[in-house]
């Protein structure tokens, strides 16, 4: 007589046995008390595991997780703001530089090989005005140091 083992009983419990094998097994255990007992014992173990209890998570869990999440969110938002600030600053600087280069570029004559910036063509009169105003301003406070 062919007997069955735990490997087969496990397959029976998991529903991995085809119909004809199943019928053959059921017929067998109706006659073989030992196989029947071993199968019922494993079935009992399976049923016991189905009654496995849920362990309760701590009641403060949600609060603790949300607190940690908000702590994580803040630095990244700060980093984002810093990055955007840096980007705006860099873009402004580049625009000023390009604007200056564009203005200077207008004064260039491509036919003659002159230096990139021809200072003789740049109107620097505003610098002269600034220096004059500075002279008159400092004369108020330090009259002895200013040339007559």
């Amino acid at each position: 007589m062919k007997h069955y083992n735990d490997e087969f009983f496990n397959k029976m419990i998991d529903g991995e046995v085809d119909d004809s094998t199943r019928r053959e097994f059921l017929h067998h255990i109706s006659e073989c008390k030992n196989c029947e007992l071993e199968y019922l014992l494993l079935q009992k173990a399976h049923n016991s595991f189905q009654k496995i209890q849920i362990e309760e998570a701590p009641p403060t869990l949600n609060m603790m997780v949300l607190k940690r999440i908000s702590r994580v969110v803040k630095p990244s938002e700060g980093g984002k703001k810093f990055f955007i600030g840096m980007l705006i600053g860099l873009t402004t600087m580049l625009l000023i530089l390009f604007g200056y280069a564009f203005e200077v570029g207008k004064t260039l004559d491509p036919k003659d090989q002159k230096p990139l910036i021809d200072f003789s063509k740049i109107d620097l009169s505003f610098l002269q005005e600034f220096l004059n105003s500075f002279k008159s301003f400092s004369a108020v406070f330090t009259p002895n140091l200013v040339e007559p």
Binding site: D6, N10, L37, L41, L42, K44, A45, H46, S48, F49
Partner: peptide
């Protein structure tokens, strides 16, 4: 996965048998 599952069942089955709980079956 099946090996781990079946061994766990077999271990419990052995304990049930050792404690003579098969009478209830």
């Amino acid at each position: 996965v099946k090996v781990l599952l079946h061994r766990s069942r077999n271990a419990l089955k052995k304990l049930i048998k050792e404690n003579n709980l098969e009478d209830e079956l």
